[in-house]
């Protein structure tokens, strides 16, 4: 890659697979599960986190030498809260319906452990450009899982993707419904999100044996 050195590229590619924030680092689970019943909500959430992570990491990296370490948690929370307010206001202005679906979970980006975790682990000790890449990489890793979970839950649960009836109409019995296929409404309920993430972890760790935990 011309733009990025190999070390920098690793900052983005690592969180996408072998150091994924959700399945490996166990960060940011809360919001990942609650809003994934629809693909659209998952994508919006992923984009919001991408924005907050990217900008937040840059800001923290810029002020990392002037924050007294005793109050750094409060400083970090304030920075994230300010960014999340921006996201929330933008969503309310341009996608009001969606902001109703996401309800409190936009606010909960503040306490999303990925953000605090990356601030603590990376932005406080690294320069601006690398922090920015790290933020983007981790947010993408988070977004990928969110979109996978949202995809399967919406497809199997409602037979739609982004609101389009890709599997045909369940009432008029077109598409696959003509062959007696039924939607599994259970996929839309909260517990299935956990089980889908569990299965993603299973698949990922069977492909890469190094990630298996020993008791």
């Amino acid at each position: 890659m011309g733009l990025l050195s190999r070390k920098d590229a690793k900052l983005i590619s690592d969180p996408l697979a072998d150091n994924n924030p959700i399945t490996i680092q166990v960060l940011g689970i809360c919001s990942a599960l609650a809003i994934t019943a629809e693909l659209k909500a998952s994508i919006v959430m992923a984009v919001s986190v991408l924005f907050v992570m990217g900008v937040g990491n840059v800001v923290i990296s810029l002020i990392r030498n002037i924050i007294p370490s005793k109050i750094r948690i409060i400083v970090q929370l304030t920075v994230v809260a300010a960014l999340v307010i921006i996201v929330d206001q933008v969503l309310k202005a341009f996608a009001y319906e969606l902001s109703k679906t996401l309800s409190v979970f936009v606010g909960l980006i503040i306490t999303n452990c990925i953000i605090m975790g990356r601030f603590e682990a990376f932005a406080l000790g690294n320069g601006l450009w690398r922090s920015f890449l790290d933020g983007i990489g981790n947010a993408l890793g988070y977004g990928v899982i969110l979109i996978i979970v949202g995809f399967f839950r919406e497809l199997l649960g409602a037979g739609t993707l982004l609101g389009y009836k890709v599997l045909g109409d369940p009432i008029e019995k077109t598409g696959v419904y003509a062959f007696g296929y039924e939607n599994n409404g259970f996929m839309l309920l909260a517990p299935m999100a956990l089980i889908v993430v569990g299965i993603i972890i299973w698949v990922q760790r069977s492909r890469n044996k190094a990630l298996i935990e020993d008791e």
């Binding site: 399945t23 309920l189 909260a190 956990l194 569990g198 760790r205 044996k209």
Partner: peptide
């Protein structure tokens, strides 16, 4: 093996959530 630790905890939590429903 691949489910050990985190994976199985997720799935158990899912089952408990079904119970709580």
């Amino acid at each position: 093996g691949p489910l050990r630790g985190l994976g199985i905890t997720f799935i158990i939590t899912g089952l408990m959530a079904i119970g709580f429903m």
